[in-house]
């Protein structure tokens, strides 16, 4: 607060301040660009279209999880259960259609019906888990962190129970095609991920519901007093994060051609890292999906680099952990820059 009130009110600086704000808001994109450039320059074989497509494709699951998690966090809540929801939906898909061990072996006529059928089942799993979380947090007023931590453990247990602790594999070909086909030379999974990001960017920035998510996350009292149904908005945030997680689980099942009881363990923290790196504030009410995209891509490109360098995978973990801490530092730096200059 070294600035006097006089300098604070000088108008000509407004333009450059806008630039500072723009930069601070999108700094994660700058970091991503620099990182990718450095990788291309210094890691042999990194700078190829195939690698980049792979990065986007690899981002699909964590990416879609991150969208749901972002909505939950922006609305002022938290959802730790997404990873287990994803695994449960994947396992439900696998159990429904697989003909192996614990599989139910559903084979409709014509066979392509397994695609919408299993997707519907997976999304219903998401709806059920989301309703459960919303009930705990909004109706019973439990702390969201603890309640969804409970769900996280509970539904991972359900995954194991559902599969009898065994891997369920072998999916019919129409489902495999979801994960393996390409459109215009780009994997379908990448297209789907991009579509999810675009759709939810639109919802968050252009629709009243998106506006309410920010309002409720910023100060729930104000929208309540303005007649907005705050509890419904919070409940919708839980439903969306769970349904998106379930969708990611369905995609993951098609990709791995089945599900294992420990499928996707660790993805919660990757999603968390991406969301925080992407600039979503844990306080709620703040953050953009455009930043989250960059966060997801940054983590994915680092993982790819570690693979290419044939480092031990635990380096990925260390780098990601360090990035989360760096992102938190960046967040607080942003706030102090804001309060000082803007």
């Amino acid at each position: 607060m070294s600035l006097s009130d006089a300098t604070r009110q000088t108008e000509p600086r407004a333009g450059s301040l806008r630039l500072v704000e723009l930069f601070v808001d999108n700094i994660v994109w700058a970091i991503l660009a620099i990182t990718l450039l450095a990788f291309c320059l210094f890691i042999p074989g990194y700078g190829q279209t195939g690698i980049f497509l792979n990065i986007v494709e690899q981002s699909a699951f964590v990416g879609i999880l991150s969208v749901g998690l972002s909505i939950a966090i922006i609305s002022g809540q938290i959802d730790l259960s997404i990873e287990s929801t994803m695994a449960l939906a994947a396992m439900a898909t696998a159990v429904l259609v697989s003909s192996s061990a614990a599989g139910f072996g559903w084979t409709p006529q014509p066979l392509w019906l397994v695609v919408p059928g299993s997707l519907l089942v997976a999304l219903c799993v998401g709806l059920a888990v989301g309703s459960f979380n919303a009930f705990l947090v909004i109706r019973l007023k439990l702390n969201a962190f603890i309640a969804t931590l409970g769900s996280y453990i509970l539904f991972r247990g359900a995954v194991v129970a559902l599969s009898g602790g065994k891997t369920v594999f072998g999916l019919p070909s129409p489902l495999r095609a979801v994960a393996l086909s390409k459109v215009l030379g780009v994997p379908l999974l990448a297209w789907v991920t991009v579509a999810v990001f675009l759709a939810f960017t639109f919802i968050l920035t252009k629709t009243p519901f998106g506006r309410y998510v920010y309002l409720v996350g910023g100060n729930p009292v104000a929208p309540f007093r303005a007649g907005i149904r705050v509890r419904s908005v919070s409940a919708a945030a839980f439903l969306l994060s769970a349904v998106l997680a379930a969708f990611a689980g369905w995609l993951l099942a098609t990709r791995t051609s089945g599900a294992t009881p420990n499928l996707g363990i660790g993805m919660l923290f990757e999603a968390f890292a991406a969301v925080v790196i992407g600039g979503v504030s844990l306080k709620g009410g703040e953050g953009k999906l455009s930043g989250v995209v960059a966060g997801v891509l940054l983590l994915s490109s680092i993982r790819t680099a570690v693979n290419l360098l044939m480092l031990q995978p635990h380096y990925t973990q260390m780098i990601q952990g360090g990035l989360v801490i760096a992102a938190m530092l960046l967040d607080s730096a942003k706030h102090s820059i804001r309060s000082r200059y803007l």
Partner: peptide, 8 residues
């Protein structure tokens, strides 16, 4: 300030 959202 009760009816104002600071973040928007």
């Amino acid at each position: 300030d009760l009816s104002i959202c600071m973040n928007v």
